[in-house]
Design a protein around this nucleic acid. Structure first.
Lengths: 301, 301
DNA sequence: TCAATAGTGTCTATTAGACAGTATACC
DNA sequence: GGTATACTGTCTAATAGACACTATTGA
């Protein structure tokens, strides 16, 4: 249970060792967090009957300083020595969106040597999912501008080469982030190498129009993860308002998964993640829809 | 595509800015990697007919220096400024096991402020899965001793409290790592809080007999992840030798998942992940078993 | 009335769970 | 022969996919 008062080769106890410890011996990388803040927004339709179209949106900021001045980046910043990674992520999230207490998850820590031209920077990416009805975005000090961009994700091609004892599968994924007149695009090449038992995934930026750092890779990774998790967890409800129709929920699934779903199967599948309310939509040019809420109290996975 | 020669408020181009950039302004955390190296070993049986029992094993090193001198820790070390996180992980893996080119995956980056008594250290944990037949473990310089420990994972209790608009679910998990006369034990309390839409998982070390740092949490997290991934990926084959029987494969699934499986369903499920060979086991006190290999060339997920 | 969406019923195909039963080596 | 494991057949239950059908509103 408790540690014994052992002494090391120099006869020091742990307490003595720590008092004499010089933390400044080695050169260190800097650590940052980068935030992938997603939400879902609606676009009004010209036809009064039609439901508003939904789209997945990601928050980007235009860099106001070197490096990558003028380019678009994920919100983020340095982790100070006296705050945890998660606290730093929450701080960044709050400073950009003014909201707290939302779903947030660490995705991946990016540690390539040359990823920041200023110096060695290791960055943990966090994904946050927020309900747009709770949002008031503002630009922080280091950002010239912060805005929501509609996310497009398209697999351009998928090729596969057989090797001795394995294969290499390459996918080229086009990412499109746009917002009114601005359209940022890029292509990430995702390579999966399988050799014997060893499987390895690598991402390279093949084309880049307007994204700072390696943020394009982070965006691709986050969407891949979001797609995966949506299938076997309840995280999608973090993107929904408190009350929603099953059709709305289905649309959100569809835009995240990038494919259409059949309503009956969908309804069966999510049936016990949601609970009916007594309320209905109204003023639609068609049959009103029952409103549902997320059923927290269900016996989950 | 290419970045324009924009200048910032001070009239500097990016190149000029980078030349004048002073990277030494802020105090920085140190960054380490910690390795969770798993393998599967067999224990011979007294009864010649019985199959050898298998167990999941984890590599630990006994610390030869302060802090936590004498306690057991995950192999790991500092990331130098000129190597990537992944390179550091591979270096550590190689220095402990003398093997390279095995399955390795980043799990999580641990960034609590007080997790290392020496100074602020942020640590990325990586999981490696190795086939024991390929192994020759050796202790590195910073390790007094490196050894494989049999992993036990048991959910002691699971309690659930309902809250307004959510719940708190707490699981107490007993971890037992043992190796001959040494038995390290600990209890990790895993708390899942759901409030409205927000779900949050926290881990605390509730009991600790012999583990350094927060490594008990890392071990619990890794096993949780390994269990999850085994169900929807092929990573398990990284723990298998090149040729294996379906019963052996089933046993490995069972020890990782912590529950028994039915053979017919199991065989159907993994049928197209494996390929038959012409070989059979022999000298067993019972019917010989066909040997299989991992089928790399299958159209995977 | 009709466009557009909401919602249900049901057939079929696929998959998972359970368990009985047969097969085969080696001491 | 008997023990321990290898392997298959088949019934049943649960789940997913497909599609047809009915229901309901506001302009």
């Amino acid at each position: 249970m408790s540690r014994e008062p052992v002494t090391d080769r120099k006869g020091l106890t742990e307490e003595q060792f720590l008092q004499g410890y010089d933390a400044g011996m080695y050169e260190r990388p800097s650590v940052t967090v980068d935030m992938l803040i997603f939400t879902v927004m609606e676009r009004e339709q010209d036809n009064y009957r039609k439901l508003p179209e939904k789209s997945l949106q990601l928050l980007l900021i235009q860099r106001g300083e070197h490096p990558f001045l003028g380019q678009w980046a994920l919100p983020g910043g340095f982790v100070s020595v006296d705050e945890s990674l998660e606290d730093a992520a929450r701080r960044e999230l709050y400073s950009e969106t003014n909201i707290d207490n939302v779903y947030m998850e660490q995705l991946f820590t990016w540690g390539e040597v040359g990823r920041d031209p200023r110096m060695r920077v290791i960055s943990s990416s966090y994904m946050a999912l927020v309900d747009r009805t709770a949002l008031h975005v503002q630009a922080g000090d280091d950002a010239a501008d912060a805005d929501w961009f509609e996310v497009g994700y398209e697999v351009l091609e998928s090729s596969r080469k057989e090797l001795a004892g394995g294969y290499v599968q390459e996918e080229r994924i086009r990412l499109t982030l746009h917002k009114e007149e601005i359209a940022l695009t890029g292509v990430v090449s995702r390579t999966e190498t399988v050799q014997g038992h060893v499987r390895r995934v690598q991402r390279e930026i093949a084309e880049n129009n307007g994204f700072a750092f390696d943020h394009l890779k982070m965006i691709q990774y986050a969407i891949e993860r979001l797609r995966g998790k949506v299938e076997y967890t309840d995280i999608i409800f973090n993107l929904m308002p408190p009350l929603f129709t099953l059709s709305e929920l289905q649309r959100v699934y569809e835009i995240i998964l990038g494919r259409e779903l059949l309503a009956p199967a969908f309804r069966r599948k999510i049936a016990d993640s949601v609970a009916e309310t007594a309320e209905y939509t109204k003023d639609a040019g068609h049959r009103p829809s029952k409103l549902y809420r997320y059923r927290v109290d269900r016996d989950s996975n």
